[in-house]
Structures are given as C-alpha cells and as structure tokens.
C-alpha cells in the first residue's frame, strides 16, 4: 500500500492531479480537492505523475 499526503496549506485546488490519478484525486462540487489517503501499489505511478504535475508541489507519497 502507498500513503498519500496533500499539504492543504499549499494546495490551490487547480485539479491537475485529477487527470493523472482519477481514482485518487477529485474536485468536488465546490471545486475543492478531495483525495483518498491510501491506495494500492498499482496506483503508485499515477500518483507520482500527479505529484509531478502539481503546480504547488503539495502532494507527497509515503511508501
């Protein structure tokens, strides 16, 4: 399993991560980011991509 942390102080809810890892990240109806904090190892590459494309660099992965 991998653990995902989003620094909500940094996050600006741009939603760039949503496209890279749609199973993990979503924008809710108020355009705020929601995410699942633990995921299967199979999601690791998607979450890495999501962390890379985050303009605020708010996503970290703990393996």
């Amino acid at each position: 399993m991998i653990k995902i942390q989003v620094d909500m102080e940094k996050c600006q809810h741009y939603g760039q991560c949503v496209y890279e890892a749609p199973n993990i990240f979503q924008l809710n109806s108020e355009d705020k980011l929601e995410y699942i904090a633990t995921a299967d190892d199979a999601e690791l590459n998607n979450v890495k991509e999501a962390a890379d494309v985050c303009p605020m660099q708010a996503i970290t992965i703990v393996q």
């Binding site: 809810h13 741009y14 939603g15 949503v18 496209y19 924008l27 809710n28 109806s29 355009d31």
Partner: peptide, 11 residues
C-alpha cells in the same frame, strides 16, 4: 475563472 471541475472536464 472558477469552475475548475467543469473546465477540467472540457480538456
């Protein structure tokens, strides 16, 4: 401006 979820869906 705003409406991020809708903008993202249109990409």
């Amino acid at each position: 401006i705003g409406m991020r979820r809708k903008i993202s869906a249109l990409r």
